[in-house]
Amino acid sequence: MKEFMTNLAIDFFVAFGIVLGACLLAGVGSVMTLQAPAYKMLDIAGRIKIWAMVAAVGGTIDPIRVIETNFLEGHLSPAFKQIMYFVSAFAGAHIGTVLVKWICQGSVQS
């Protein structure tokens, strides 16, 4: 159980870090090219969210295959754990995106 919780936390923070890091570096790149950083950061936040989630859970089709094989064989616990890894990674990517939107809120008028 401890290993499962550790992996959930790691998946969350990897996805969160990918979104936050990519957006911050996109902002730096925008400043260096004399563009408005908030627009680029918001654009990157929306586009990288799914890739952050995929990278956090393994980056290949193997996690989905684990769900399929275990579910079809009736082993629900490993399938449920893998689904929870996806949920944790999605939560990290989403919170990272929300944080970037919150940071850029004052810079971009809707």
Rank of each mutant, 00 (worst) to 15 (best):
L24K: 00
A15H: 02
F90H: 08
T6D: 12
F4V: 15
S77D: 15
I10L: 08
I44M: 10
M32I: 08
F12Y: 14
V54A: 11
M53L: 14
L99W: 08
T6Y: 07
L99E: 06
T33D: 06
I83E: 08
P63C: 02
F4W: 04
G29F: 09
Q82T: 15
F13R: 03
P63T: 03
G27W: 10
N7A: 10
L72D: 15
I67R: 00
V19K: 01
V66K: 03
L8F: 07
M53A: 11
C23N: 12
G92Q: 05
P63D: 02
I10Y: 01
H94N: 11
A38H: 13
K49G: 01
A56T: 12
I50F: 05
D62H: 05
G46D: 13
L20V: 15
P63H: 01
S77N: 11
I67T: 07
F80H: 00
F12L: 14
H94S: 10
W102S: 13
T33A: 05
L76I: 15
I95K: 01
V31P: 00
I103F: 10
Q105D: 10
F16E: 08
I64E: 03
Q82H: 05
G29M: 09
I50K: 00
I48L: 09
W102K: 13
T69A: 05
T33Y: 00
S110R: 09
R47G: 14
T69V: 15
I61C: 04
G27V: 14
L76D: 11
V14A: 06
I83S: 07
S77R: 11
A15C: 05
L76S: 06
V100D: 08
I67A: 02
A22R: 00
L99G: 02
M41V: 11
A52K: 03
A36P: 01
V57D: 06
T6F: 09
L25E: 13
E3A: 09
S77P: 04
I61W: 02
P63M: 04
H94E: 13
A45W: 04
K81F: 13
S88H: 08
F86R: 01
Q109H: 06
A91M: 12
K49P: 01
L25W: 03
L76W: 11
V108E: 13
I61N: 03
M5C: 11
I95F: 12
F12R: 04
I18Q: 00
A89K: 02
D43V: 07
L25M: 14
F71E: 15
Y85N: 11
M1F: 09
L72H: 05
L20W: 08
I48Q: 07
M5K: 09
I61D: 02
A56C: 12
A93I: 03
A91R: 02
A52I: 09
Y85F: 12
V66C: 05
L42E: 15
G58Q: 08
K2R: 05
G74Q: 09
Q82W: 05
I64S: 07
Q82F: 06
Q105A: 07
K49T: 12
G27R: 08
G46Q: 14
F80K: 06
E73Q: 10
